[in-house]
Every structure is written in structure tokens, then in C-alpha cells.
Design a protein around this nucleic acid. Structure first.
Lengths: 298, 298
DNA sequence: TAAAAATACTCCATAGGTATTTTAT
DNA sequence: ATAAAATACCTATGGAGTATTTTTA
């Protein structure tokens, strides 16, 4: 009887997540038959069927479901072993999978990558850019090591490290440059351009205006701050961007930047990781570097 | 870079336990070089030394120690996966590693093996006979599935299932057969033969006499109930044995059996397993069978 | 010097890939 | 009819064994 292997668990974990042999195989960087064979092997060693053969869309058996959960856990523990080893070293080495939200990534990454590559030679940085909820899911599943995002996230099992506070500034067409800066009530009367649903920055901008959802007439949305600023340049409306975005985004657009007075809209940027991660000390170091990278951008 | 494998963890776990490449290899049923190579591989993948090379007796690095703990946990989780599969089946199948204390094993096993082999075809019973503390260690380390012993064990993380109560009877030379049965005080004045240190049965017998340790003059000890009964037959003293041992042990010895009156010495026999084990339902079935096997012995 | 671990080298089992067939919608 | 999974077959890698050399107590 062939022994159970981690490879089999890795493949099965992928299969359970993707629900598709081909995609799972691709995610594991192997051919579909290779994965098929290993799954069958696993079923043989366990002595029970993991999935209902001849059923598309693919369905796991009840046993398969619990088995997949266990497998995920086991794989996480194994990956943590590697983390443990890295924690033993005094420098940050190996592969670090870091997630960054879209309203931070473009302004932080160039400097961050520069700094880490000079201070942590041999560190292989894998970056994933997506919205907060997805980052948190990946983080908790152990597919990301850490993430840079807006705090608080307030998820059990995750540790948050606040790095810095940053204000949002108003972006308006150049022609409005000398008008008085609107307060939040005035802002609500203007055509405010927002990021599409899902971005935490959108919610932060809305909450500054004391709104829970966008007003019907403000349905103009962009998928990136860059797009929003371009739209402002075209005279379509106004928008908010975080300070760290100013340098980059105003370089090519004919827009004017203004600080808010009174209660400034702000966000707190921080680093998040699994509480149980052995790399905690390393993440704190990384936090310093992220902070530094962000500072130079403002 | 080669991936981390369960095989490597298995070997390392064994190495950490035995502190000796040769013995660990033997325990894994592989040659010493095979194990050496895998350990080195593991160190390479993890990127940190697990043991202090060139140091005899073998010593793990601090990282090696934590790593060994993790490895053990991981291997246990993996083994539980197999249990999970077996639990999915409605019958008890595969290999079941069962521990039994020495004062139960000889009287229970013949019948137990008979019953299981007829009711659970295909069940491969691995029996380990040793004293309670060792059984508990093996159990908690996941190297045993379940154990039959005297309750209570009262260990966190273990589930106890009481099966039956059983009295201890007095064994005395045939010439004493018509004397009155001694009470516990009288017993203390007689030459009481005991099992050697470590057997729970010894402690139970002593506590019946309200003694914490054996009296100096009673240092006559045997390593099995069988030996004790033979010694009684030779007129050396008296002893106690559990009811289930009577049939077997009095067959060949010229001794007389007597029930105690008043407060009878007793023990409770039960089944113990890891609380987290997915095989709980199966163990309850097994309990029935153990009970039945024991009943027929009395 | 004796016991234990590391190396060297050879062999085989197993995982993977490509090509192809089977199956289910 | 088409997309997806299983099967067939070949190749290559990696783990195991035996023999041997190093190492340290």
C-alpha cells in the first residue's frame, strides 16, 4: 500500500478549492492527468471515495468535504514549519507572499520593492493586489503571509500593526483651484467620483460625507484612483485620493489638490498577519520598511 | 528546490524520539543512510540546521526541538485523516493498534481476537501489552488507537468508557482452603505476594490493605499473576487476582480461591482513546466486544 | 579503536508528461 | 458536439539499498 503524501493533500486541497481538475492542476503547475492520478491514489490509500465520480459539476462526498478541511489545516501547519525555520534566521529570507489593497499598491510597491531588495537580499517578494475581504480570506487560508491595508480589520486570529495615518485630499479641476475648499456638506452637493464597490477606500470616502451608500446621481465609478483623477481632469467631477497617491496621480493630470480643513478624512494604514505566524518578529521589521517606503511618497 | 515531504517528517520525528540514526531508521524500517539523507534533505528545504552535526550523543538545535514538536503534531493529524476515512465506513477496518495492561491481556486477548476476527473480517489487530503509564504515553502520541485498562485514568484529552466492574479474589494454598476468609486487616498480617512496581494492579491490591507501599517483609514480587499464583501454590504466601484471571490461573496450580466479604476489592475495566479521534463510534462498538470477551472469562 | 553517521554508487519505483480515449452535458 | 476527466505509455527523478569512508568519544 502506498503511503499518504503531502503532494496528494496539496492536489486534493487545490481540487476542493477549484472544483475542477484542470484548473486545480494548473494551480499546482502540473498536468491534469498527474493530478487525477494522485487524487485516485489518495482515495485508494484512505480507502474511501473523496468525490462522486461521474458527476459534473464536480462534487465532493461528505467524507471528501471533511477531508478537504483537514488537508487544508495540515498543509497550513506544514507551511508554518517553513516559516518557523525562517523565523530562526535573523533576516527575512525565502518567499514572502504579501497582499496590498489597490489604493496603496501602486504608490507603495516601487519603493518597497526597492528597499527590500537592497536590505533583504535573497528575499523573494510575491505581491498580490486585491480588495480587503479577498486579502483577508487568502491570509487566513495561509496563501498570503501578510497584507498592507486600511485598519481596522478586526478579524479574530489576525494581528494588526498600525503603521501610519494619512489624510485624504480633494482633487478638483484646475479651474476650481481658487474656490474655497468645500466641507463635507458642500462635498455632498458636488459630483463625487468613487471607486467601484468593494474598495474600502470608497466606503471611507462615503462615510466622510456621512453617507452609507452612493447617491443615485453619483453613479460614476472608476476602477482605480488613476481613472478617477483622469475623469476629474476632464471636468466630470471631483474625487478624494490619499496623500500617498498625490505625487503619482497629479503628474499627468491637469487637476488641483486641496487639503480639507475642519475634520479631515483620514485612514490608518497597517500590516496584518496571522496571529499564530512564527514570523511575527519579521513582520514588525517589514512594517518599518513599509512605513519608510510610504513616507517617501508623501 | 525539493519540496518538504511527510516521509522526511516521519523520519525526523523518529530521530527526535530515538536520538539515534540507526534506531530511528530501524523504527522506520529503512536503512540508516536512507534516513540520514532524508534528514539532510529536510534541513536543506527548511534552510536551517535541525541537529548539531558532529555531536554524540545526538542533540537537536533549539529550532530542531520546536520543529520536532510540530512534526509530531502534523503526523498525528495526517494519521487522523486515515481514521476519518475508517470512521466513514460502517465497520471497523484496517489496522487497529490496541494496548492492554498485563493483568488483563492474557485473559482477554484469546477471546477478543476470536470475536473480532469473526465479526470484523479484515480488521488487523495490533496488540501492545504494557503498563498503564506507557500505554497512555503511546496513546497520546498517536502510536496507539485505544487501550484496555483499569479506570480511572483521568488524563486530559482522553475519553474513558467504563466497561465492567470486577472483584479481586484471594488466592491461598489449598491447605488453607477451609480457614475463614481474612478481612483487610488480617490480610495485612499475611505474606502478600505482589506484582512488581509499575503495575496498577499492585497499587490496587495495596490500597485495599490501606497501604501506600509494600511492607518491607513482603518484598516478594512477581512479574505476572501467573508467577504469583505458582508461588502461592508453593506455599510461599497468598495473593490477589482479578476474577477474569481465575479460570486460567487456577487450572495448573494447586491453590484455593476465596471471595472477600465485607468491602470487596474491585477494579473498573474500561476502554480509553484520544478524545479527538474520529473513531469514537467504532471504539464504542469495540467496547461491547471487549465486554463480551471478558464476560465469558468469568 | 569501536560505534555511529556521512558519502558513494547503483537500482527501481513512482510521479510526471504527452497522446488518446471515455464520459457527461 | 464539446469540454472534462480517465487511461495508456514512456521517461526521468528521487528514495532505498549495500558498501565504504569519515568522525568522535
Amino acid at each position: 500500500m502506498t503511503p499518504l503524501t503531502l503532494r496528494q493533500l496539496r492536489y486534493f486541497d487545490a481540487l476542493a478549492r477549484f472544483g475542477h481538475f484542470g484548473n486545480a492542476a494548473a494551480a499546482c503547475s502540473v498536468s491534469q492527468p498527474a493530478l487525477s492520478v494522485q487524487i485516485k491514489e489518495l482515495e485508494t490509500t484512505l480507502g474511501a471515495p473523496l468525490l462522486e465520480r461521474g458527476a459534473r459539476p464536480l462534487r465532493l462526498t461528505p467524507f471528501g468535504i471533511t477531508c478537504a478541511e483537514r488537508a487544508t489545516q495540515i498543509l497550513q501547519s506544514v507551511d508554518e514549519l517553513a516559516d518557523l525555520a525562517r523565523a530562526a534566521s535573523d533576516r527575512l529570507t525565502g518567499t514572502l507572499r504579501i497582499g496590498v489593497i489597490p489604493t496603496i499598491a501602486p504608490y507603495l510597491l516601487p519603493r518597497l520593492i526597492g528597499l527590500t531588495s537592497q536590505r533583504h537580499t535573497g528575499l523573494d517578494l510575491h505581491v498580490r493586489e486585491t480588495i480587503t475581504p479577498k486579502l483577508l480570506t487568502e491570509l487566513k487560508a495561509g496563501r498570503l503571509d501578510t497584507a498592507v491595508l486600511a485598519l481596522p480589520v478586526d478579524e479574530p486570529g489576525l494581528t494588526e500593526l498600525p503603521l501610519f495615518d494619512e489624510a485624504f485630499v480633494l482633487v478638483r479641476p484646475n479651474v476650481d483651484a481658487n474656490k474655497p475648499v468645500p466641507d463635507r456638506e458642500a462635498l455632498r452637493e458636488m459630483r463625487l467620483l468613487l471607486l467601484e464597490e468593494g474598495h474600502c477606500f470608497r466606503d471611507q470616502a462615503l462615510s466622510f460625507c456621512n453617507l452609507r451608500t452612493a447617491l443615485p446621481r453619483e453613479t460614476l465609478e472608476g476602477s482605480s484612483l488613476s481613472t478617477l483623477v483622469q475623469m476629474v481632469g476632464a471636468g466630470i467631477g471631483v474625487t478624494l485620493i490619499p496623500e500617498m497617491a498625490v505625487a503619482v496621480e497629479t503628474r499627468s493630470a491637469e487637476v488641483s489638490i486641496a487639503q480639507f480643513n475642519d475634520p479631515q478624512p483620514r485612514r490608518q494604514v497597517g500590516l496584518v498577519w496571522r496571529q499564530a505566524s512564527p514570523l511575527t518578529a519579521r513582520f514588525r521589521e517589514l512594517g518599518e520598511i513599509v512605513h519608510e517606503a510610504a513616507k517617501s511618497q508623501r
